[in-house]
């Protein structure tokens, strides 16, 4: 008989025992180890994903901050540039104003200098003219300047034309006060009497006269009565001389003004 039923039973029992033993010592531990490893791998992958997401988030945050910083920097730079340009403009305006003020000051000073110079020239010319005229008259005609001036004034009186003479005659005759004779210098008595005689002859009347010294007449004689005036003086000639001097000075001032340096505009 090939089948031994005791052996069959024993082998069945042996198989069941072996199945239990292997389940206890082989399958369960091995499957547990595999599951645990898979769980760990899954956890590590999850951690890695979380870290990756975190890194991505931090990268985004960093990028965002970086962009914000760039924007802020650009804004600050732009603001600083604008402020610097505004300050530059302000400083340039100030410098321009200062240069203008200085130029105006220089112009004023030049005008003052010109005026002073004109005054000085005028005075000096006056003196020189008198001195030259006096000397020339004295040397050539053996007479003094005052005498010549009185003579000149007398000739003018005599040469007065009709209407002017009438007006002056009326004024002299109707004047409540004596007619005033102003001269740049003190007239000697002979000249005064010569002048009085000429007046009496010219206007055919005995006119009372009052003499007065006025240096601003500049070597001249002026007769005034009741608002009418007759005068001769070197001032007329001096005025033309003054015009000539003015033109000369203007001609000098223009090149100086053109030669003035322009204010620097470099920033």
């Amino acid at each position: 008989m090939l089948i031994d039923w005791f052996t069959v039973g024993a082998q069945t029992l042996n198989f069941l025992v072996l199945a239990w033993l292997l389940k206890r010592f082989l399958y369960q531990p091995i499957l547990l180890a595999i599951d645990e490893r898979e769980r760990r791998i899954a956890t590590e992958l999850g951690d890695a994903d979380a870290k990756k997401a975190e890194a991505q988030q931090e990268r985004d945050e960093f990028q965002r901050k970086n962009e914000a910083f760039d924007r802020q920097r650009a804004a600050l730079l732009s603001k600083a540039t604008n402020e610097a340009q505004a300050e530059r403009g302000r400083l340039l305006d100030e410098a321009r104003q200062a240069a203008d003020a200085l130029s105006a000051q220089r112009q004023d000073a030049l005008v003052n200098d010109t005026d002073d110079l004109k005054l000085a020239i005028r005075g000096r010319t006056q003196q020189e003219v008198f001195a030259i005229a006096r000397k020339a008259l004295k040397d050539l005609a053996a007479t003094d300047l005052e005498g010549q001036m009185v003579g000149m004034f007398a000739r003018r009186l005599r040469e007065l034309d009709g209407q002017a003479k009438e007006c002056l005659t009326d004024a002299l005759k109707t004047a409540p006060e004596p007619a005033l004779v102003r001269s740049a210098f003190e007239l000697p008595d002979e000249h005064r009497s010569a002048l009085r005689r000429t007046l009496n002859e010219t206007f055919s009347a005995d006119l009372p006269l009052r003499f007065e010294v006025a240096p601003d007449l500049i070597s001249g004689i002026e007769l005034s009565a009741n608002g009418q005036k007759l005068a001769w003086s070197i001032a007329d000639y001096l005025v033309s001389l003054e015009k000539g001097v003015d033109e000369l000075l203007k001609g000098r001032a223009k090149p100086e003004a053109q030669a003035e340096p322009k204010p620097a505009t470099k920033g």
């Binding site: 031994d4 052996t7 024993a10 082998q11 042996n14 025992v17 072996l18 033993l21 292997l22 010592f25 082989l26 531990p29 091995i30 547990l32 180890a33 645990e36 490893r37 760990r40």
Partner: peptide, 28 residues
């Protein structure tokens, strides 16, 4: 008989081998 004895031997080898190997399993 030899069947039972050799079966026990196989059982011993399998169970003991499994026990020895799975005694210190690595989870890493």
């Amino acid at each position: 008989n030899a069947t039972i004895v050799y079966t026990w031997g196989i059982m011993l080898v399998l169970a003991l081998g499994s026990k020895l190997i799975t005694r210190k399993l690595s989870m890493d």
